[in-house]
Computed example of a mutant assay.
Amino acid sequence: MEIPWSKPYWGQAEMAPRPRSKSRQGWPPYLYPNRDGYKYRHPVTRKETWMGTDKAKAFAAAKKLNALLMPTNNLVDRVVGSKETVADAIAVFRQDDVPARGWAPKTAEVYESVIRRIEAGLGKRAVEGVTVKDCAEFIRGVTPSDRARQQFRLVLGWIMACAVQEGWIDANPVHATRRFTHERKRTRLTKEIYDAIWAKAEPWLRLAMDLSLVTLLRREDIVSLKFADVRDGFLWVVPQKTEGTSLVKLKIKVGEQLAILLSQARDSVVSPFVVHRLPDRARPSDKRATARVHHTQVLPEQLTRAFQDARDAAGVGGDSPPSFHEIRSLGGALVRDAGWTTEEVQALMGHASKSMTEHYLDGHDAPWTEVSPPPVLGTRQPN
């Protein structure tokens, strides 16, 4: 997902100071006369700061600032060689940490985009010279979104932690920066909105919606379900988001409602996938999406678009309409209100922590009409 981040000023090249006039020969770079005193111009941001009227103090301060803000001009570094940079820490993070995290391809793509932005903005900086203020200014400057800022803070913290672990610095400056919080803008999906969208959906989308409501599976897992995954009275699922990380494996009992949905899925179209559809037009195999292994397969993006189209046709959701993913939280709230404990909902959702499950259930506190014991969740009988 592309986020419209603004370009950070750290990504700009350092500005070289203008040649000194004869009257200012010997002055530290970026120090200028200002009225009866002196001012210092930041070599990167160009922000000017009043330095007072004392020439000796202004010169001393400018020299210290240049040593901090212009590490390439540091005479000690010229002798002993350059220090480890943020780019070096990023290289360690990519080599040692990223493979162990087992990110799904789309998650890895999002994080790599963040890493590249950090590398462009801070990569040339010596890790030893990166301060809390540097980190805070970078995080604030890279994007106006508090949600995205927190993501940059998280990843930058991981990267600087590598520098600590390598012994290049003693403390992680990112840990002292502000945590950014953001309010959920997406409207929670209610049963009334769900029913309105369902009424406008095509049969295959209705099936996908009801399956997600009953099983609490994510979009990617719903479209990946195969009839071969149903055996011995259970639906066997390894959630894609947790595959290779938390090793969550779900063995979902095929109760009455799930059995009805699986029966509905066995229609006249021959397909290995539970949720399937015939393509609008046939395409040669070399023209199909690389992720599609069967011509009846529904891709996650197709499911999202179809849900959005049905939602728009129903005219529901307001300014921040719910996505297909919100079906999980609605289904979790329904089974909780039908008598399940949070721990039972957590197990079905495949969450590693109870707090994450509570986050999904938050916002569904309005009273519900009486429902039958789980797993009966109000799905429909075939016509």
Rank of each mutant, 00 (worst) to 15 (best):
F227H: 09
D229V: 07
W236G: 13
R231L: 01
D229H: 14
G233W: 03
G244E: 00
G244H: 00
K251E: 14
G255N: 02
T242E: 04
L235P: 09
F234Q: 09
V248A: 10
G255R: 04
G255Y: 07
V254L: 09
V230M: 10
F227E: 03
I252G: 07
S246C: 07
V254A: 10
K251S: 09
K249N: 09
K226D: 15
P239Y: 08
L235K: 10
K241C: 01
T245A: 04
T242I: 02
I252P: 12
G244T: 00
T242H: 08
A228S: 13
K226G: 12
G255D: 13
Q240D: 07
K249G: 04
L247F: 09
G233Y: 03
T242N: 09
V230L: 06
W236M: 15
G255S: 07
S246I: 05
V254S: 10
G233I: 01
K249E: 15
T242V: 01
F234R: 02
F227N: 05
F227P: 02
V230N: 11
L235I: 13
W236C: 15
R231Y: 04
V237F: 15
E243F: 03
I252V: 08
T245E: 10
A228I: 01
V237I: 15
Q240F: 04
T242K: 08
L247V: 06
F227L: 02
E243I: 00
K241H: 02
V230P: 07
K251M: 04
D232L: 00
Q240K: 13
Q240R: 11
F227W: 00
T242P: 08
K253V: 06
A228G: 13
T242Q: 08
V254F: 11
K226S: 14
I252C: 07
G244Y: 00
L247M: 07
L247P: 01
Q240C: 08
V248N: 06
S246Y: 09
D229W: 10
P239V: 04
F227G: 04
G255K: 02
F234A: 06
V238T: 09
I252T: 07
D229F: 13
K251W: 07
T245H: 08
F234Y: 11
G244K: 00
T245L: 06
R231W: 05
L247A: 09
D232V: 00
D232R: 02
L250T: 12
G233H: 05
K241I: 01
V237D: 15
V238L: 08
K241R: 05
L235Q: 12
W236P: 12
I252Q: 05
K226I: 12
D232E: 03
K251V: 01
E243D: 03
V248T: 13
V237C: 15
D229P: 10
D232I: 00
I252M: 03
T242D: 02
V248D: 08
V237P: 13
V254N: 10
L250W: 11
K253A: 10
S246Q: 13
G233A: 05
K251N: 11
V254G: 09
E243P: 01
V248E: 05
D229G: 12
R231K: 11
Q240H: 08
K226C: 15
T242Y: 06
S246R: 12
V248K: 11
F234S: 04
V248Y: 08
L235S: 13
A228E: 14
L235H: 14
W236L: 15
G244P: 00
L250D: 14
T245Q: 10
T242M: 05
T245F: 01
